[in-house]
Design a binder for these strands. Structure first.
Lengths: 205, 205
DNA sequence: AGTTACCTGTGATATTGATCACAATACAAA
DNA sequence: TTTGTATTGTGATCAATATCACAGGTAACT
């Protein structure tokens, strides 16, 4: 598996170190990779697939925060790993995914020795923080119709596909809304010629 | 100024380095310390006062994310400084505040040399990330009444005071709501004996 | 073909919060 | 004391969204 190509800035020595110590794991669509309250023993680098990072509400709600794709890493797992504290979020494989688990014991050492790792970690924090900011923006300032459009657009960008296999109920869960509202808003978008609706599938135009 | 006491874990060498290179700045209540789109040239350590970190919406809205108090640092300024990118948030002094500005050029060096600084940076990322998560939780899962209670409780915790000098309008701005709504909810809280309302002042019971 | 389990569409109604309008109050300055 | 200004209280109304109720469609399995 040519995982190095996903992290082209890592120096050869670092690549070697990771290769020696990390474990590659496969997840099926729907598998939970990390759950709220769990202790984290390694940092996750995504090689393939798509990981959904979301927040769970005790009284039964989910809320999508962002997706991780190949070449990205979970900022929360980095921080938790370093501090050996528990995670506050859930991570689920959206599709079949491959993840490289780098043991936490290496983290300190890698941060010191490898500039490229240090940069990568900082870059990861930065991106996730920004994504969280845009999530806050959306729920604080936007109505559901705009949030839905943003949601679909983001998905298209992430996957590069213009079809999206998902039910209205799942979208409602991600946006913490209700199925009926999403159905109605999608209908309106269809009337505006932004999407075409099918069963379990939305086509972006 | 005995700023070291606020950062008891910093090694003496690190303290000395900071002392030699950092600049202490004073801000009056209401001063903007950092604005959206601005390039960041130093990392801010709060020595005294209270800094409000908030998000600004192009079409005229603010949204409070969290406060920084003495001994805390701005995670955004750290990340931006390292990457020499622009900030995506606003920082404003809520009261007279003292801030230590550590030039960005030192950051890399300090991260490598001083374990205590490294730990501090990680700890800062972690805390701010968690705070952002709880912000997301609140707006995603809670109604305004709960958000208001959380807002008041958090303020009490941060300041240690049980009185809060603020107008209903300002609270509404922080929560991105409207003055009337906040007034009504506060009245209800008063009826439940959770607060006593005065002009420009709320007393927590 | 019949059954079952999901999806989707749509009306009716309820709730939350935003907005408008205006009154009442409190403090400060003249 | 008067006047002015900012703050607060409150009713009425509106908009967005959640919730309930139910109908019809579509795929999957027997």
């Amino acid at each position: 598996m040519e995982w190095k190509k996903l992290f082209p800035n890592f120096e050869p020595e670092l690549v070697e170190l990771i290769e020696k110590n990390a474990v590659q794991r496969s997840f099926n669509a729907g598998d939970i990779i990390m759950r709220t309250g769990q202790y984290i023993k390694s940092t996750a680098l995504v090689l393939e697939g798509q990981i959904k990072i979301y927040r769970e509400n005790p009284d039964g709600g989910e809320f999508l925060m962002y997706y991780l794709g190949p070449g990205q890493a979970c900022a929360v797992s980095m921080i938790c790993a370093i501090q050996s504290t528990t995670s506050e979020i859930m991570a689920k494989a959206e599709v079949e995914s491959e993840v490289l688990m780098v043991p936490v014991q290496l983290m300190d050492d890698m941060m010191n020795k490898y500039k490229s790792w240090y940069q990568f970690v900082i870059q990861t924090y930065r991106s996730r923080f920004d994504e969280l900011l845009s999530v806050v923006d959306n729920i604080a300032f936007r109505n559901m119709d705009e949030r839905l459009e943003f949601y679909l657009k983001r998905h298209a960008e992430k996957t590069g596909k213009k079809t999206f296999e998902i039910s209205h109920q799942e979208i409602a869960d991600d946006l913490h809304s209700s199925r009926e509202v999403i159905s109605r808003l999608l209908k309106k978008m269809e009337q505006r010629n932004l999407v075409k609706l099918h069963r379990n599938m939305i086509e972006l135009v």
